[in-house]
Nucleic acid binder design. Sequence first.
DNA 1: TGCACGATTCTCT
DNA 2: GAGAATCGTGCAA
Length: 198
Amino acid sequence: MILQRAFYERDVITVSKDLLGKLLVNESLEGKTSGKIVEIEAYCGPEDRAAHSFGGRRTARNEVMFGPKGHAYVYFIYGMYYCFNVTAGNVAGKPEAALIRALESLEGKDIMSNRRGATHEKAVTLTNGPGKLCMAMGISKVQNCADLIMPPFYIMDAPTVLPENIVETERIGIDYAREWRNKPWRFYIKGNASISAK
DNA sequence: TGCACGATTCTCT
DNA sequence: GAGAATCGTGCAA
């Protein structure tokens, strides 16, 4: 069953942890690809210096974070990669989101290999990073603002990962965020081979 | 209108 | 472990 709106209308950190183990699915023209979410980071709105919405900044790019929860926030980074976020939060209109950092590929691995290029045929490296999983799943700015509670692009429910199997650590790639850099808002499934970094 | 830089990844040393 | 690739975005001017 597809996760419904209420799932995302909760505290963004709770939503981030609960999204671990869930299945991201994209039914594209090339075929269906899916993967289990194994790594995620929470970005906590205006007070979080690492978030695009820090200070309440509202622009054309991050506009979707101010809208309904459970939508896709996809942005272009470093001139060549996309990052995929899910909007979430227990306060309507507050710009918060969770960054999906890694998947464990399930369906459509051949399609993922094609999208990632011939030099990346090993299953694990297809989706063990935010830019990589977007490439493998066929996510681009086309999916920006997409509603994730209905096909063709959605997240399926799956058994919740137990707290003892969730590792909490500091986020990656946000050295500029000063004191917020060390917040333990990155979560991943303990022992999973598909996470992006230790 | 211009310009510095990023929630990354890959290659080469 | 360092450096390149590569461009939309945000903010200063």
